[in-house]
C-alpha cells in the first residue's frame, strides 16, 4: 500500500512539471535537508538559517563600493512516517532578507517557497543492536512549490533576481542519503539535485546540486545525548536563464566546511551548525559567500 502511495506521488510529479514547462515555474530556497540522525519517528521543528553574501565592487563602477545580501529564513519543518519505509517531509519557510547598498538598506520579508519530499528507505539495518556496522540508504523525490513571491524585474532595478522570497516556479527535487554507523560513530552522505523550471516571466533559476558528507559521534551525558558533527558541503548551481538566454554572471559553486552540535533530550532535539566557505566561485566572482549559521529545535512524537 505504502509503495503504491510513493509510486502515485512520483507519477504525479511529471504532470506537475509538464504544466510548468508550458509556462510557469522556479526556485531559490535551500535544497539542503540537513543531518537528521534520528531517522525514525515523526517530528515538527522550527529552523533558522542565515546566509550572508558580500557583493564586490564593480570593476567598471568601483565608486559603487561593496554591498551585502543577508538571506535569513525561519522554517517550519516536519516529517511524518507513512509506515516503516516511507517518510513525508515538508518545509515551509518565511524569508527575512536584507540587502545593503551604498544608497541604503532594503528589507524583504514574506512567505518563501515550500518543499514537499517523499523518501523511501531502500535499505536499513540501523536498528540492529547485534551489528557493529550498520547502514541506511534512502531515496526521495519531491517538489518545491511557488508559494513565495517572485517579482519581475523592472527597468533600473538591481539585477539580482535571487533577492526574492520565491522563485515563482515549480521545481523537482531528488534526494539520496546514506548513513554508515559504527557503534556510536557515523558517516552521513547526502546528495540533493533540484531541477528547476521557468517561471511565468520566463526566468529560470539554474539547476542546483548539493552534496554533503558529515562524520558524527554520539556521546551520552546523563539523560542527554550529544552529537558533534564535522563535515564538508559542496554546492553547484548552473547558470540562470532569462527569456531563452543564459545569464553568464550567475551560478557557480562552493565548498564549505561545517561544524555542528546536536543535542537530544527526551523528545527534543536542539541543533546548531556553522559553515565556513573553503573555496568558491559565484557569479563570476562578483559575490563572495560568507559564513552560514543554522539553529533548529525539533520535537519528536
Amino acid at each position: 500500500m505504502i509503495q503504491r502511495i510513493v509510486v502515485i506521488i512520483l507519477l504525479i510529479l511529471p504532470s506537475v512539471v509538464a504544466k510548468a514547462c508550458d509556462g510557469c515555474g522556479c526556485s531559490i530556497s535551500q535544497a539542503y535537508f540537513g543531518l537528521t540522525p534520528n531517522t525514525n519517528g515523526h517530528y515538527i521543528g522550527i529552523w533558522w538559517q542565515h546566509q550572508h553574501y558580500k557583493i564586490l565592487p564593480d570593476h567598471l563602477f568601483p565608486e559603487r563600493g561593496y554591498g551585502s545580501d543577508s538571506f535569513n529564513s525561519v522554517e517550519i519543518r516536519s516529517r511524518f512516517e507513512l509506515g516503516n519505509r516511507v517518510q513525508l517531509s515538508a518545509i515551509l519557510p518565511i524569508a527575512l532578507h536584507q540587502r545593503q547598498r551604498q544608497d541604503g538598506t532594503t528589507p524583504l520579508q514574506g512567505l518563501g517557497d515550500a518543499v514537499l519530499l517523499a523518501s523511501c528507505e531502500l535499505f536499513d539495518n540501523s536498528d540492529s543492536i547485534q551489528l557493529d556496522w550498520r547502514h541506511r540508504l534512502s531515496a526521495g523525490a519531491g517538489v518545491k512549490l511557488p508559494s513565495g513571491e517572485y517579482r519581475e524585474l523592472v527597468d533600473d532595478t538591481e539585477s539580482n533576481p535571487a533577492y526574492q522570497t520565491g522563485s515563482g516556479s515549480w521545481d523537482v527535487i531528488f534526494n539520496l542519503a546514506y548513513t554508515l554507523r559504527w557503534r556510536d560513530a557515523g558517516l552521513h552522505i547526502e546528495g540533493t539535485y533540484r531541477h528547476n523550471t521557468a517561471n511565468q516571466n520566463d526566468y529560470r533559476f539554474g539547476n542546483r546540486t548539493d552534496v554533503s558528507a558529515s562524520i558524527y559521534q554520539l556521546l551520552q551525558a546523563g539523560t542527554t545525548q550529544l552529537m558533534p558533527t564535522l563535515g564538508l558541503h559542496f554546492e553547484h548551481s548552473e547558470w540562470n536563464e532569462n527569456k531563452g538566454y543564459f545569464l553568464t554572471d550567475t551560478g557557480g559553486q562552493a565548498l564549505l566546511a561545517n561544524v555542528g552540535l546536536e543535542t537530544y533530550w527526551q523528545q527534543f532535539n536542539l541543533g546548531a551548525s556553522y559553515s565556513h566557505p573553503l573555496q568558491q566561485k559565484w557569479n563570476n566572482d562578483w559575490i563572495d559567500a560568507q559564513e552560514r549559521f543554522s539553529l533548529h529545535l525539533n520535537y519528536f512524537f
Binding site: Q3, V7, A198, R204, F246
Partner: peptide
C-alpha cells in the same frame, strides 16, 4: 517491482525541459 517505475518517473521528469538556452552574444 516499483523501482523501474520510479526510474521511469525520474527520467520523464528530467526530459521535461524547454529548448536549451543560448549565450547572449
Amino acid at each position: 517491482k516499483t523501482y523501474p517505475i520510479l526510474l521511469l518517473a525520474f527520467f520523464s521528469i528530467l526530459s521535461c525541459n524547454k529548448e536549451s538556452a543560448v549565450i547572449d552574444k
